[in-house]
């Protein structure tokens, strides 16, 4: 009887320890707990984050970009998105834009030319929205299912809002078959 009681105690302790381990394993890690707040919205509508609003007004793809006198080629395809950005209650700079493909891979705006619209270069005042285009290079196979990501944070996106907007991209094969350089609209006051 005494042996059975000791065995029971041992099993109880082991069960508690196993349960604690299971709870620990199931709990999200620190990075997951502090992940950005995703603010999902539709293409063509204002998606409102903590300190900014963004509207993806148009999207197109291109095989080549014309930046000044330079033609930028790509092994994949250029995704060019027209954005309308506005501040909510205080001045804001948009410092991050990227797309995420169906398998979760992230492609940030290219650094092959300056993109002041989303690199913190424009200080947006409340009531004075701006617009312009950003260009992102992605593999052609990924272009069919892309989600635009926009944030006012630069590298550390923890516990801040990030806009997520699905992009309707459909003309990839046609563009790659007939490459023609396209210009990227520079930032300007929104109309």
């Amino acid at each position: 009887m005494k042996l059975l009681r000791r065995l029971g105690s041992f099993l109880l302790i082991a069960a508690v320890l196993a349960a604690g381990q299971a709870v620990g394993d199931a709990t999200p890690d620190r990075n997951h707990q502090l992940r950005p707040f995703a603010v999902a919205g539709d293409f063509g509508t204002d998606v409102v984050g903590r300190d900014f609003a963004v509207r993806a007004a148009a999207v197109r793809c291109a095989a080549q970009l014309k930046i000044g006198d330079e033609i930028l080629e790509t092994q994949g395809v250029w995704i060019v998105v027209k954005l309308r950005l506005s501040a909510r209650t205080e001045p804001v700079r948009i410092r991050y834009a990227a797309v995420r493909d169906a398998s979760g891979r992230i492609y940030e705006t290219t650094d092959r030319f300056e993109q002041y619209l989303v690199s913190g270069g424009r200080n947006i005042q409340p009531g004075l929205p701006i617009e312009g285009e950003v260009a992102i290079e992605v593999p052609a196979a990924s272009a069919g299912d892309l989600t635009l990501l926009v944030a006012s944070t630069y590298v550390d996106h923890r516990v801040d809002s990030m806009a997520e907007i699905p992009l309707p991209v459909s003309d990839v094969s046609g563009v790659l078959a007939n490459p023609a350089p396209t210009e990227v609209l520079a930032p300007r006051a929104a109309s």
Binding site: R88, T89, E90, P91, R122, N123, I124, Q125, P126, G127, L128, I130, A189
Partner: peptide
């Protein structure tokens, strides 16, 4: 109640 700073692009 919106706030504006002195570094306006405009």
């Amino acid at each position: 109640g919106n706030r504006h700073d002195t570094e306006a692009q405009e």
